[in-house]
Amino acid sequence: MLRLHCPNCGVDCDETELSAGGEAHLTRFGPGSEDDDFESYLFMRKNPKGVHFERWRHVMGCGKWFHAARNTVSLRVYGTYPAQVTAPPEALLAEIDAVEPGWRNKEEA
């Protein structure tokens, strides 16, 4: 069972109070974009074994969206951060570097 801290209302919520919003930090390719870009925006998602950035919505609580960084294998939660950003905060990335050395290389591979 997953417990995430909602940065909007400050509650430590249970997974059952949340709604999963899929992979975070996607770049939208809309009308007029290349077919390949549009396809990858619509359908292609990362499915890493390890560090993953996700969108969640506190649907049974304050109703707001937020981001979470967690490990899909150990289920360890590295942290949550506001929805109004296009990339994870540097401080959080540094924290993940400290506990998961080399995770960035895995992500690029």
Binding site: C9, C13, D14, E17, V59, M60, G61, C62
Partner: peptide, 10 residues
């Protein structure tokens, strides 16, 4: 005040 889930509803 805690907004939460009561069995299956909010």
């Amino acid at each position: 005040v805690r907004r939460t889930r009561l069995a299956q509803v909010a």
